[in-house]
Amino acid sequence: MIRLQNVSKIYKPNTGALSNVSLHIKAGEFVSIVGQSGSGKTTFAKLLFAEERPTKGEVIIGDWDISRIRQSEIPILRRQIGIVFQDYKLLPRKTVEENVAFALEVAGAGPSRIKKIVPQVLKIVGLSDKLGRYPRQLSGGEQQRVSIARSLVHTPKILVADEPTGNLDTIHSMEIIELLKRINEYGTTVVLVSHDRDIVNALKKRVITLHDGEIASDIERGKYMI
């Protein structure tokens, strides 16, 4: 599903973020990417949805080598991958319903499809009663659930969550992780970038540890080991 081959990323002028990383994530897996600040976790996530491009090596999603993806192809890639961010990245002047619908609208989905899917995904995340609220009227946990709902509208094969619990308290964090687990159970490959020891240990899933841009360990049913 996701394959990285000898991937290195160097930011200008000369800051190495990833160094010769190779890994393979199979379809349906739930993988946690852990590591200290500056270990390359976020760069790794950004490579998966082409916010960054590798300086060297190949990033392959399905059969698509996105290492040298053209600017015009990036929206097509992003409509196939669900992305969840630490800061939610919701459009502040759109309601919950509009934020979720926006991801479908940019892809040219028809009104009937939008009318059908948006309530469905908002029901999955438990926000059916807050369609007309603006992000500022929601708690952090609710905003993150909107972000997850938005990432689900295209029924993505891959969901990349970059520190989704970074701004949340423990209770809300666990709610979000439960949601991600449920999404994974439906068959979506989940890549969770996190530095939350408790969450990663509670998951009992594959853990890839990055250290100074290199893979320090890659363990099935692993633990946070830094």
């Binding site: 916010e51 990036i74 992003r78 459009l91 940019v106 938005r150």
Partner: peptide, 16 residues
């Protein structure tokens, strides 16, 4: 500027 970035991240093309 942040909204523009968000739109791009959820798959909007430049013209949209």
């Amino acid at each position: 500027r942040d909204e523009i970035g968000i739109m791009k991240l959820v798959g909007a093309n430049d013209w949209f």
